[in-house]
Design a protein around this nucleic acid. Structure first.
Lengths: 203, 203
DNA sequence: CCCCACTTAGTCAAACTTGGCTATTACGCT
DNA sequence: AGCGTAATAGCCAAGTTTGACTAAGTGGGG
């Protein structure tokens, strides 16, 4: 619920403003906030007494828009949430990691190719982020810490590029996926379909 | 829905098996799968024709457990999902990034301290992951690619440690958060409470 | 001057997640 | 033998998130 935070610093806002701001940050990508969630969140926060609906104006026959403000309680709650996120680690879920855990279900050649491909995609990403860091628009019109966030993403991505390439090589090299204890024991069924016969003599 | 994948390689399984396997991977952390989701997912996958309920045995007066298998259609679907995740980037949502975007709401000294703290937490994490990589248990009893996943996490974390420290310094140095265009213009209201008076002469 | 396409603002039902609950059996300890 | 604790299976209602939809104003090209 970081909608609360947004409302807090745009103070009197209505839902649509919040939506636009979020989309302009393309925050739907890295926060879990799609446009549809916003109005529900606003109503729920109001119920909980963290927000106040201060006005409901209507222009013509368009849907009425309700304007919100943060209450003292909301201020507190936000502070708490924010501190919590700043001071504590919280591993975010990562779909790629989940997919990677099924490595043995992919043919080795494809897995390696996909990893190399991923490395390239990441590199392209890094390049475009770098470019945006240089661009005048970002340098002059966006708060500086936005650039810092981009730097974080770049740093993580670069680290991952290296990993992708290292792992691609290992996958190609044909090392067995099975743990030492189970070498030439029978593993679970259901692994060996994507695998191109992991060559029992693999080392 | 990577429950499907799990069912696929443990072939005839019942819900509880899946649950245990997931928890043993502590997959509730990096996938978005809490124990409660499993049974619902299984039923839904069955409805969609991706799974088949093959048996329902009952031991004593305990809840009956239903055993599932993957259908051909499920096999296909899994293949598609898996490939999609392997070949395409998909930025996962990251709560810290979201929190960081509210940097101006934190006093500079606290922000810097929190960043340093984060760096330390990450370092501790990396250390414990490194240790587990050395441990015999992981080396001998777990498939090798599990270690590779740990390496990925370490690499990302290390990149982030560096970033935290660099940013902590910048925050402390007092550089203004405002974009060049808005220097000494009035920004949005609602920023300046956490900020310890961003000293208009800050540079 | 009219029509098409886009923007504005928000609703809603459906899907998905979650955490807590139930109720039985097995196990270890004294 | 008795008792408390842990493990076994799974259910369910409540809370969240989502993507698709509505429906009126607006603007500019032909």
């Amino acid at each position: 619920m970081m909608i609360l935070g947004l409302v807090r610093w745009m103070q009197p806002v209505h839902g649509y403003d919040v939506r636009r701001e979020l989309l302009s940050w393309s925050a739907d990508k890295w926060a879990n906030v799609q446009p549809g969630s916003i109005y529900h969140a606003l109503r729920k926060l109001t119920e909980e007494g963290l927000l106040n609906a201060v006005a409901t104006e209507q222009v013509g026959a368009r849907p009425a828009r309700t304007t919100y403000e943060v209450t003292a309680k909301g201020e507190d709650e936000f502070e708490t949430l924010l501190r919590n996120l700043w001071w504590n680690l919280s591993e975010p879920p990562d779909p790629f990691t989940a997919a990677f855990s099924f490595l043995p279900a992919m043919p080795r050649s494809e897995a390696a190719a996909a990893l190399r491909n991923r490395a390239n995609l990441l590199r392209a990403n890094v390049a475009s982020m770098r470019a945006s860091l240089e661009s005048d628009w970002v340098r002059n019109a966006k708060p500086v810490h936005v650039s810092w966030m981009v730097e974080l993403w770049s740093a993580r991505a670069e680290a991952e590029v290296g990993w992708c390439e290292r792992i691609a090589e290992r996958v190609e090299s044909g090392v067995s996926y099975l743990p030492a204890e189970l070498e030439n024991a029978d593993g679970w069924p259901g692994w060996r379909d994507g695998e191109e016969r992991p060559a029992p003599n693999a080392e």
